[in-house]
Each structure stands twice: as C-alpha cells, then as structure tokens.
Design a protein around this nucleic acid. Structure first.
Length: 507
RNA sequence: CGGGGUGUAGCGCAGCCUGGUAGCGCGCUUGGUUCGGGACCAAGAAGUCGAGGGUUCAAAUCCCUCCGCCCCGACCA
C-alpha cells in the first residue's frame, strides 16, 4: 500500500476538519491560546491581517460618510437594562466588574476590596452606551444623520471557544448610526451590508450571500438583522458580518430624540453593523489547503518572500546584494493602492525547511534566488495557489513588470475557486426527506464532510425552524436578498411560500 | 451547568495495571559533514511527574480531596 502524499498539515481537511483548522492557524503562526481561558494572543503574522482588514474597511466607511470615535469599555449595568430584548440576549454572556481595588490580605494574597456602587459590564456590544451619548449629541433634525464607527475589543463570555471564530475577547468594528426617518435608516442598514459583501468578495476572495435573518437568529433588540453568509471548505456556513435595523427600539430606550422640521419631537431611527476578527478565521477556512494557509494577496500579511540560496560562502555577498536590490525594486511597486510587501528571509538553515515555513504561512509568491539564477538574471518563482512543484524561471525584468498582475491573478483564482466550491455545494431541495438526506453523513461515528447550502421553501413557521435545528443542527442562515421571487410550498408545513431560504450547518 | 477524557522537559507522548527514585520523538545549544524542495553524525542543556494530604522502608505509579485544560451538549459574531 502506497503512503499517502506527505502534507505539511496533519490531519488533512478530509480527515478531521476542525483539527486541521487549529493546526493551520498554529503552523501559520497567526495566533495561539493564551493563559486566559478562551482568549487568544494574535501574533504578528495574524495581526497584520487584521491591520489590512482595518485599513480597507476604514476607507470604505469613510467613503460612505462615517467617522471614527471611541466609547468606553465599561458600561453601567443600568444602561444594559434599558432595552428588554437586549438584556435577555446578552445578560448570560457578560463579564461584570464589581470592584476597583486590590488589597493584600494576611496570607499575602491580593483580594478585591473597593466594591463599586453600580457594577460595570465589560461591553458585549455598545448600543446602550453609544445611545446615551447620541441622546446628548442629537437635538435637531439638522444633527442627523449621525454616522459613527468604533474599532474596539469586545467581551462575550462564551462556553466554547475556537481561535478567531469564537473567543471570549475579540476585536471588531461597530458602526452606529442615527437617522431622521425609517427609510433612511433601512437604507443605511442595507448600504453597510453591501459594503461588507463587497469587502468579503473583493478583498477576502470569499463569496457571500446577503440576506435577512429569521426572528430566531435576530440581534437582541433589533427590528431586522441582515448578514453575509460564506461557505467554508467543510460546507458549513460562517456568518461573516451583520447589519441591524434597530427601528426606534434603542432610541426609545436611550431617549435619542430630535425636533423635526415641523418642530415636532421624534425618536431617531438607528442602525448598527459589525465585523470581527472572525473574518480571519473565515479567510483561513475558505482558502487554505492541507499544506497550510493560503492568503488572498489583497489582505496578505506580506505579498512576496525572497529566499536567497546561500550555500557557497564565496557568492554569499553577491546573492544577498542581488536579493536586496530586487526587494527594493519590488517594494516600489504598487498593488491595490499599497506598496508591495516583501520579506527577505536571510535566516540560516536549510532551504527546504525555510520554504515549507513560508508555504505554511500562506505567502502568495515565493522567489528563490541562487547563483544560477543570478547568472541568468532570472528568478525562480512559485505561487501559493499552484502546486509546490510548479516552479517557473522568470527573467528578472519580466518579474518586476508582471508581479502585480500575478498577485491579482492569485486573488482572482482564489475567489473563483471559492465560488465554484460554494456553487457546487448549493442545492435546491424540495422535500423534508431530501433535506434530511442532504445533511446526514454516511458515517455517523466520524462524520465526513457533507451537506452544504440547501435552498428550500419555508413559509415562516418558527416551530419547524426550531425542530430542524434540534434534529439536525441545521439552521436558516438567511433569507437571501438577491434571489428571484419564486412561488412554492414550505417543505415542512406545505404552506405557500414566495421565495427560498438558505439552510445550513453553521459555525 | 450536565456527560466523557486528560494533566510527566518548550511541544507531542510512553511509563502507572504489577511501587524501587525519569524516558522517547520533535524542538533548543555547540561542533562537524551536508545543502537548488521537510538533512545527517556527535556532544549537551532542560522536568518540585497539576496541587495538597494519606498508605509505605520507598509513590509519577496505590488511596482521598481540590484545581486546570480538552472534547460532546445547551448559548453565540
């Protein structure tokens, strides 16, 4: 029996997808678990992904008229109590600060001493505290719309955590806006959802479905919640971003009132929307393979690595000099409005080991340069989206001329690959039996990758929705916004339905 | 919070059943040979065996208590 091909990551996706994911994150040096339960340390290679995400999204938020601000980490308990549904949704996962001082006791142990009059909640989201400030800032219709965003950390005390996908503390961005009319607020909700969808597809190379959440999946306190849903390589759905139309629920709770042009007092209409470091987990699961990370060039921590081949002492200086000059020339190039980023790996050590190191880190392009290449004034290039053996020699001048378009080719090939994968695993399903078959693995002991997105008619029956979630762990991910209206009958209740919704297992 | 598992060197593990004072692989350090795709040889550093208590001449090993972590479930971006 032949051995299976050696892979840098073990287990492979097919063998054990969740474990593969953890190993890819670790081997790619993105993040690791911290001494604090459920919290992660994001390492430099992973954090630069977040910096790139921030940079691009910030530009998109500014372009749509938003401004950044910062609100406190601590929220008075009483603020959270103001909106009934909101309380219910978040109370169970709040971290609470009750003391403000530590003292040494007789055993030389630090113990909390000064009890707070009112406990402070570490923000699980900031609607209430931002609402309190909005109430002060808004008096007139001339103060509207108010379009604010903040980059912040959030704490939600989750039972189970996974690196990037669900951690106790995570980084995110939350936009909060207030408007004079319902129509304007609804428009904003949709606008930002589209910003997220564009970002996911154009930058993360991750195709998404935009849709509205059912009541069961709605943000606590929202009138309507919308999301972008992406399919991971194990065919499960990842909610990658949300946008909420909050109606007047929070403006009533926080008394965000204004005088309209007719001099009449009205409650403002608000929205909120966010994406988090979860996006990084999504990017990993959308593109990486059994040899580790594959990063989309537009967000990659770096674009190119140059690996000088330095075996012979005699030519060492010459090789390094050549590589330095090439690195400088490549850095002067522009990709997607940013300078091309180049890593020059001059570490000691065997070439093969270093090469695999960069494969696992997912860098889009590797260049190996030794005396033979220099003699020919060419470099040996390998693309992370192609097989590792597929190495091409490119004349140096041509490399410099075509590097940017190569990066863009990789970006597009990743998007195409992800789109094909999603489309191949998205199916119209017209009976409950077929749905059960679709989401039932062949091997119940050790479920293989199965299922996908099932497009089914559903007439809005919450009981049927809850039942399928309980029986199979399958939920309605969203009611797609861009699908064609199509009359049909609910696969559970046989009631008339106007359009299909997306059923899937989810993260 | 319920069910299951696990804790021994930086990481991954063996040793425990049948007590005798610490071992393997990877990594790390040093030297050498190698080197155009995951090298090899040699020497070395590194562990209060999760914590506390008990039994014993003797405990990683047996007994009791506590703690951490992981997986499954309920909850979630």
């Amino acid at each position: 029996m032949a051995d299976k091909p050696m892979t840098a990551i073990s287990p492979t996706r097919a063998e054990d997808y969740p474990e593969w994911y953890q190993q890819v994150v670790r081997a790619g040096d993105l993040a690791e678990l911290s001494p604090v339960r459920g919290c992660m340390v994001i390492k430099p290679w992973g954090y630069s992904l977040w910096e790139n995400i921030q940079r691009v999204l910030n530009g998109m938020f500014k372009a749509t008229g938003h401004r950044n601000a910062y609100f406190p980490l601590f929220i008075p308990l009483s603020f959270l109590e103001k909106e009934a549904a909101h309380v219910e949704g978040f109370a169970k996962e709040c971290a609470v600060v009750t003391h403000h001082r530590l003292e040494l006791n007789a055993e030389r142990k630090l113990v909390p001493a000064g009890e707070l009059e009112e406990p402070l909640v570490v923000r699980p989201t900031s609607e209430t505290i931002i609402g309190a400030m909005f109430a002060k800032w808004i008096q007139s219709y001339r103060d509207l719309p108010l379009l604010i965003n903040q980059w912040a950390n959030i704490v939600r005390w989750e039972m189970r955590t996974r690196l990037f996908l669900r951690t106790t503390e995570f980084l995110w961005q939350e936009g909060h806006t207030a408007h004079a009319t319902e129509a304007e607020a609804r428009e904003e909700t949709e606008r930002m959802l589209k910003v997220y969808a564009e970002f996911a597809e154009q930058y993360m190379a991750m195709p998404v479905i935009m849709g509205e959440k059912t009541a069961a999946e709605r943000f606590p306190g929202a009138v309507a919640t919308y999301s972008i849903e992406a399919m991971m390589q194990d065919r499960k759905a990842l909610q990658a971003g949300t946008s909420h139309f909050l109606g007047q629920n929070f403006s009533r709770a926080s008394e965000i009132k204004f005088l309209d042009a007719a001099g009449k007092e009205q409650f403002a209409w608000t929205t909120s929307w966010g994406v988090s470091t979860r996006l990084i987990g999504g990017m990993v699961m959308a593109h990486s393979d059994d040899d580790g990370l594959i990063l989309p060039p537009r967000l990659a921590s770096a674009h190119v690595v140059i690996l000088p081949i330095l075996h012979k002492e005699a030519v060492r200086t010459e090789v390094l000099g050549y590589c330095d000059r090439l690195a400088a020339e490549l850095r002067a190039l522009n990709y997607c409005g940013q300078p091309v980023t180049v890593e020059l790996d001059t570490r000691e050590g065997r070439g093969g080991e270093k090469v695999w190191n960069w494969i696992k880190k997912g860098i889009p392009i590797r260049l190996e340069i030794g005396p033979r290449d220099i003699a020919a004034d060419s470099v040996s290039m390998t693309r992370r989206d192609r097989p590792h053996k597929e190495r091409v020699n490119v004349p140096r001048a041509e490399l410099v001329r075509t590097l940017v378009s190569k990066l863009e080719e990789i970006q597009q090939s990743l998007l195409e690959r992800a789109r094909t994968h999603r489309d191949q695993n998205m199916r119209r399903i017209d009976s409950k039996e077929e749905l059960v078959r679709f989401f039932t693995p062949q091997n119940a002991e050790k479920p293989e990758i199965h299922g996908g997105f099932a497009l089914c008619h559903w007439a809005g029956d919450a009981a049927a929705e809850a039942q399928v979630a309980k029986d199979m762990g399958v939920t309605i991910r969203c009611i797609p916004l861009e699908s064609e209206a199509e009359p049909g009958r609910c696969i559970f209740t046989d009631q008339p339905s106007t359009r299909r919704v997306v059923f899937a297992k989810a993260y």
